[in-house]
Design a protein around this nucleic acid. Structure first.
Length: 431
DNA sequence: TCTGGGGTCCTAGGACCC
DNA sequence: TCTGGGGTCCTAGGACCC
């Protein structure tokens, strides 16, 4: 059996842990630049706010009805996530941290020793007590069915039924559960496939489990679709993965806080992303052979039509050196730059990752990136930024003009403190 | 005025190589 | 008259997940 623990309204719940005055009020958390609604408390959902809606479209009414909007605070959410995951790891023999707010638990063999519903309810209560985060738990013979069980546990808890826990352990329960889930809510069925399924009259997960294998293979992404059907029918096709795979890419991209048209300013953003990506490579002991730079103008403007472009460069030697990555990133930007446009976003992607220092062919001309002195410089850079904060030491291209703040910097008008990760922002208790 | 970020996996065509 | 097979690199896009 598999368990799926999913935090309820995770980002909004994190905000509430340290701001109890938000309890009972509609709360939303906004994406970077305070752009879109990315998390909603139950009260905000009840007001009809949709996931992903641009905040400016709903702001006036939401605030007038007593709603509170928070800028995203990923430092806080990351730390709260670590607390939840750490506790789950104490309770289950194997845990797959699937996302910031979800984990699969390996419960094989446990039903012989525990009443799983009771056990899951206990875990749920303990997570709430220890971290302040409410969760729901689904338990079933496959990961896909555990997702279904979790979804129904949440729905029932909201309707005042059940205890935020649902175990599907026999055929009748499985069938009943699948009949209650719309096909577009099944894990692995996205927007496009839901459309195809509706077109042939498949509306529920139960109906999906009954479509022919050949049809699924042809229309739902080949082997991916076939696996999905098996899992819905109760045959497990994937286990709990405790060790995450070695990463295959690093992507750093961000919308600017304002429209930019000067290459020097966009270059500053690109240099910042290249440096952050380099930091991640060094942290993971990896080096990149391919570097892609991307830029975009607004997708929502009609005149001039939206422009987006990318340039992929093959580096002569795989590297994790920030100065080298920055240099190549600037070249990439020059290749795709079109003057006179209103850019809103830029990014850097690193692919072709290999273990740093292993199997790297030296360049004919002795690329400086492989030199021990440069490796030492990078260690010093990381140590300084670790001690004094990200961006304490930067490449010159990422430094804004004297006396100005970063023109590409984010808007974040309502960010809560880093309650758990910065000494200066700890919760204050007044006696 | 204002519309997120970070991933994985797959497909496909053109240029080029042997 | 008969015109291959296998590979990489690049760009672009589509599907899915959170």
């Amino acid at each position: 059996m598999f368990g799926l623990v999913d935090c309820n309204n995770f980002y909004a719940s994190c905000e509430r842990v340290f701001r109890p005055e938000l309890e009972g009020r509609p709360v939303v958390v906004l994406s970077n630049n305070d752009g879109c609604v990315v998390a909603r408390s139950q009260e905000a959902k009840a007001l009809g706010l949709k996931m992903g809606v641009p905040y400016f479209q709903v702001k006036a009414e939401f605030e007038q009805r007593g709603g509170v909007a928070c800028s995203s605070n990923y430092e806080l959410y990351g730390d709260m996530s670590r607390r939840v995951m750490w506790y789950l790891q104490q309770r289950a023999p194997a845990v797959e941290i699937y996302s910031v707010d979800e984990a699969f638990l390996d419960l094989h063999g446990m039903q012989q020793h525990f009443d799983l519903a009771g056990w899951a309810g206990d875990v749920r209560g303990a997570v709430r007590q220890r971290t302040g985060i409410p969760v729901c738990v689904g338990v079933a013979p496959t990961k896909t069915l555990a997702k279904v069980a979790n979804r129904l546990a949440k729905k029932d808890a909201l309707a005042g039924m059940g205890a935020g826990v649902l175990v599907l352990d026999d055929e009748a329960q499985r069938r009943e559960a699948l009949s209650r889930v719309p096909v577009q809510d099944v894990w692995g069925v996205g927007h496009k496939n839901a459309g195809k399924l509706y077109a042939v009259g498949v509306r529920t997960a139960a109906q999906l489990a009954g479509v022919g294998d050949a049809w699924a293979r042809k229309n739902l992404g080949g082997v991916v679709g076939a696996r999905l059907l098996h899992e819905l029918r109760g045959f497990s096709c994937s286990g709990v993965v405790v060790e995450p795979d070695v990463r295959k890419s690093v992507c750093k991209s961000r919308s600017f806080g304002q429209v930019l048209s000067e290459m020097e300013q966009v270059a500053g953003a690109v240099a910042t992303h290249a440096a952050r990506a380099g930091e991640i490579l060094r942290h993971d002991g990896l080096a990149a052979r391919l570097l892609t730079v991307t830029v975009e103008t607004s997708r929502f403007a009609n005149m001039p039509p939206p422009y987006s472009s990318s340039a992929q460069l093959t580096l002569p030697v795989a590297t994790d050196d920030t100065l080298t990555l920055t240099k190549w990133a600037q070249r990439g930007l020059e290749r795709i730059w079109r003057p006179g446009l209103r850019y809103v976003k830029a990014g850097v992607v690193l692919d072709g990752l290999e273990r740093a220092g292993v199997n790297q062919q030296a360049s004919l001309f002795g690329d400086v990136a492989t030199s021990p002195a440069r490796a030492k410089l990078m260690r010093a850079l990381d140590a300084l930024n670790g001690r004094f904060g990200t961006g304490a030491v930067k490449v010159a291209a990422a430094v804004p003009a004297p006396g100005t703040r970063e023109p590409w910097g984010m808007r974040r008008n309502a960010k809560s403190p880093a309650f758990t990760t910065k000494w200066g922002e700890l919760w204050q208790v007044k006696c």
